[in-house]
Amino acid sequence: MEEILIETNVRNVKLKVIKSTDSEILQLINNPATINRGFRMVFAEYKEPLYWYLRKVLYSHEDTDDALQNTFVKVFEKMTSFEGRSSLKTWIFSIAYREALQIIRKNKQLRNGNIDHVLGLEDGLLADPYFEGNEIHATLVKAVQHLPERQRQIFEFRYFEDWPYKDIASMTGLSEGGIKASYHHAVKKIKDYMTENMILK
């Protein structure tokens, strides 16, 4: 077990959190008598990180909710056969990514694969009661959405989640060098997109 000190936004309260290691969680999961506790531990530990990752990828709360539920169901179904080739976190997030990707593709299909879907997203975002951003935020979202799938995945894990390149490489099966190059291309494309859309002043 690992003790972590977390500073909250509420009156600078500091919380001491006991974080279980992968092997401790897996030990619980692999014992029928403690499997329930193991799953609840996974849920408690990953619900918020996964929610916020998915939310930053899918933007709408409803889509995030769908992806998150599907992610946990798959994690619980497959966890007893998890072989530990990567960390639990990498494995769980890769499932979440695939769920998000399915929703992104489905949404694209629903909008006939037309680029208009991106415009629709921007308008929808500004009308979303759970989104407090302005037009610049919405345009940035649009810029990220314009990235090719793989580049977007790399950008989101690196920029939004601060993942080390080696973890992204482990998840995607690509080389670290390739991941770095892809990330820098993504940043350039976002900048170019913003310039073209005359947001920069």
Binding site: H61, Y130, G133, N134, V141, I199, L200, K201
Partner: peptide
């Protein structure tokens, strides 16, 4: 994004503070 005109907005997206559940 440090020297761009939208670095703070990008940071907002990153921190997720624009989104609520």
């Amino acid at each position: 994004f440090a020297n761009t005109g939208f670095s703070s907005e990008m940071e907002d997206l990153k921190n997720g503070r624009l989104f609520h559940q």
